[in-house]
Write a protein that binds this DNA or RNA. Structure first.
Lengths: 119, 119
DNA sequence: TTCATATTTGGCAATATGGCAAAATATCCA
DNA sequence: TGGATATTTTGCCATATTGCCAAATATGAA
């Protein structure tokens, strides 16, 4: 007879889905850039578009994804709509990302080295 | 004449893509669960499958996504393949997620309240 | 009101993702 | 070797994401 480990409850499942939704919103190169840029100060679509180098409508959509996830807010000032970071704690995560990337690079290096020494 | 802000360099672009790739790997309810579970100790596909309640092949794919991003490692022991967390710092991020979720909930509450008082 | 600027929306094509089932692989044991 | 168990890979389909263009909307100024 097979012993089943405790399954995920509906509540837990919802919790993971809520988290995943937010992480998904961050999981795009342009959106990562936007978050970092907004940490420096408020920006409007046009500012970001120039830097990213994509269509304005594309950047606008990225902003709406971030806004929809509750990560950024916006306020209109005349003809411009300025976006701002609502939860700066996100940035603490970036250091960890670098750790992962470095660790991956190191491992790749080791594999390369292992191949070389074998010859 | 339009003044262009400094555009992203190719190197910066690559950096954001590398980060996004890792975040993308985390951005799924089941994979979030797997990461948390692996923090408790090594697990094999079957353990996780029972808890998640999806097909084994699906969970196996999730594990390969995490492995491919360099977040987890694996080692065979007889008939089982055990997965382990390679970068526990990921977990520090989860607290921030909860902050965002709570903040979103609070805002929703305010909107609701505002609607009520208007009546 | 009309024009110019800033921004969002809708539509569409290309691509990526997620999940199941069946087939393939790997290991252990008799 | 052959069978049992554990895991991954492949094929297929439904759905989601991304990005551009064109059209719509909002604001300010003449």
């Amino acid at each position: 007879m097979k012993i089943l480990k405790s399954q995920l409850t509906a509540t837990q499942k919802m919790q993971y889905e809520a988290r995943a939704k937010i992480i998904k919103a961050i999981a795009h190169p342009s959106r990562l850039f936007i978050i970092e840029e907004l940490e420096k100060g408020e920006r409007c679509v046009n500012d970001l578009t120039d830097m990213i180098g994509a269509d304005v409508s594309t950047v606008s959509k990225h902003l709406s994804v971030l806004k929809n996830a509750g990560l950024i807010g916006d306020k209109r000032s005349g003809n411009n709509i300025f976006y701002y970071l609502r939860t700066p704690c996100i940035l603490g995560f970036f250091g960890c990302l670098e750790d992962v990337i470095e660790s991956n690079a190191r491992q790749q290096g080791e594999i390369l080295l292992a191949c070389k020494t074998k010859r």
